[in-house]
Write a protein that binds this DNA or RNA. Structure first.
Length: 168
DNA sequence: ATACGGATACGG
DNA sequence: CGTATCCGTATT
């Protein structure tokens, strides 16, 4: 495994900071590797769209656990969505990976491409086989409201690495 | 615009 | 138990 795997301290920061910092990093799983080009932040407080908003349950346990772990959930009974737990242990912030170059341009598409399912829920991203690696930061980041949610729609928490096609 | 289909939370 | 909800995608 390459040496530049992001350390746990990378994730133990405010959610928005991690969401921005993940852009340009390399997501790797076995033979699959690609640049993260779109993320969304789900805040530990005041964010009605975050799963953690409804409290600590068996499902959201990973979000409250130590940072740097994968939070995978099944959405609409069809798609798996890959998130990364952030903030110090006990604070349930997370970042949704929405697009990875070469994997796909939607949260469900990219997980299907790499074969990510619920079995990756809780996986430690600092140990593999699913890992994130440091790489060049994007020159510019575009910030927009998050896609496809009804609650807390006003918050500008979607981050896209410029050079990607934008959908305002 | 809508069919799709499963895990989860919650009410009874 | 049953039922409402959910951070999409592919298809009409």
């Amino acid at each position: 495994m390459p040496a530049n795997v992001l350390p746990r301290s990378f994730y133990a920061r405010p959610t928005v900071e991690v969401a921005r910092a993940l852009l340009g990093c390399i997501l790797r799983l076995g033979p699959h590797a690609g640049t993260i080009i779109e993320t969304e932040a789900y805040l530990p407080e005041g964010d009605e769209a975050a799963h953690a908003w409804c409290g600590r349950t068996p499902r959201t346990e990973v979000l409250f656990g130590p940072p740097g772990h994968a939070y995978v959930f099944l959405n609409y009974g069809v798609h798996y969505c890959l998130n990364v737990a952030c903030e110090p242990e006990g604070v349930p912030g997370c970042v949704l990976i929405r697009a990875v170059e070469g994997w796909g341009d939607g949260p469900g598409k990219l997980t299907r491409h790499a074969g990510i399912t619920l079995e990756f829920n809780g996986a430690d991203l600092t140990r593999g086989p699913l890992t994130v690696h440091a790489a060049a930061s994007p020159a510019e980041i575009v910030v927009t409201p998050r896609v496809g949610i009804r609650r807390s729609r006003g918050l500008p928490l979607r981050f896209v690495a410029k050079s990607d096609t934008l959908r305002p």
